[in-house]
């Protein structure tokens, strides 16, 4: 027994020390808002992709600039764990919560819990289903408009070849409103352009690289004529590149056999592929704008301003023509530079 107490204290200290490795620190010694330094809880469903890492970094930078303390929680894809984490943030009596939910539905109890505790909550990049007048503000990319513009850019490039193209769409997780918006944007852009692009394959990925790769490989076997691909997220590009290489179809723009390729997000891989000439266009989400708007919305709510509806991030399309001009605003280009 005498040995047990020191052992457990040691264990506690070890755990505290480990915890310190992942703990966020206050922004600065003078950080305050009025008399009290604010603390914002940032609960992300995942850090699986570069986009989310860039998003988290952008939020932390924005909060640091405003001298606001951060408490972060990553649920690693588990909605129930995220619910527990949100309850932990409520227990810590944070001054606001920025939430990236797993999907539009499982976040509803989290939103209700935060609202019941009187804590403002903003959704980052993924909106929730409606809770009537209690639906929280969500800062979201205009997925439909941006993917439509991106695919329209690809279609315009396809028109210049003077041939009819066989198209493939790689879908995201259709439980995610973003994935639905991107699918609808794609469909809207190709509608009326069937003489240019005939969509012969729609591959479900569920935001999973292995599933995407298997789907693209199968699609290319079933339809070897495919020469036009749009992915609902750039993080699936490595899977597509791998499948295209296996099929001997990975060629630069301008080379014979080039597959017109487009994506969405604007990550570092997309930037590199644009630079190298393999990618034709991608729709870039402006994570810096989204982070700034999410934090501002929380502060506005705390100040008593009524917050309703979504805040739209218009984003922009980046392609071979405007690459140099737009790259400074592309978050993936910045990630690439800092590697």
């Amino acid at each position: 027994m005498k040995k047990t107490i020191p052992c457990s204290l040691l264990l506690g200290l070890a755990v505290l020390a480990l915890a310190g490795c992942g703990q966020s620190t206050p922004a600065g010694p003078t950080a305050s808002a009025g008399d009290k330094q604010l603390t914002i809880g940032v609960a992300f469903e995942t850090l699986q992709t570069e986009f989310w890492i860039a998003g988290l970094d952008a939020i932390k930078t924005e909060l640091a600039q405003r001298k606001i303390r951060v408490l972060e929680a990553i649920a690693d894809g588990d909605a129930n764990r995220q619910y527990e984490q949100v309850k932990n943030l409520i227990t810590r009596k944070v001054d606001g919560i920025i939430l990236v939910p797993k999907d539009a539905k499982t976040c509803l109890p989290m939103i209700k819990a935060a609202q019941a505790a009187g804590i403002p909550i903003v959704l980052f990049n993924r909106p929730s289903d409606s809770l009537g007048t209690n639906t929280p503000v969500a800062v979201v990319a205009d997925n439909l408009a941006l993917s439509r513009a991106t695919v329209a850019s690809l279609v315009a490039r396809a028109k210049t070849t003077g041939t009819r193209h066989a198209g493939m769409l790689i879908l995201g997780d259709l439980g995610d409103m973003n994935a639905i918006g991107r699918r609808d944007g794609f469909e809207a852009a190709v509608k009326g352009n069937e003489s240019v692009v005939d969509v012969v394959a729609r591959v479900p990925s569920e935001w999973n690289q292995e599933k995407a790769q298997a789907g693209v490989v199968n699609g290319l076997v079933a339809h070897p004529e495919i020469d036009f691909i749009f992915t609902s997220s750039d993080f699936l590009l490595p899977s597509i590149v791998s499948a295209l290489k296996s099929a001997g179809k990975y060629k630069k723009a301008g080379e014979p056999g080039h597959v017109i390729l487009g994506g969405f997000d604007g990550d570092a891989t997309a930037y590199q592929m644009l630079t190298d000439g393999y990618l034709d266009a991608t729709g870039v989400q402006d994570v810096y704008f989204e982070a700034q708007q999410a934090v501002q919305s929380l502060l506005d709510q705390r100040a008593g301003k009524t917050a309703t509806g979504n805040i739209q991030d218009p984003g922009f399309v980046i392609d071979q023509e405007n690459l140099k001009e737009k790259a400074p605003r592309m978050w993936g280009a910045n990630v690439k530079k800092h590697r």
């Binding site: 480990l18 915890a19 490795c21 929680a73 690693d76 527990e84």
Partner: peptide
């Protein structure tokens, strides 16, 4: 979680 540790920790 209350300490704000990452899930990976």
């Amino acid at each position: 979680g209350l300490l704000g540790s990452s899930h990976f920790t």
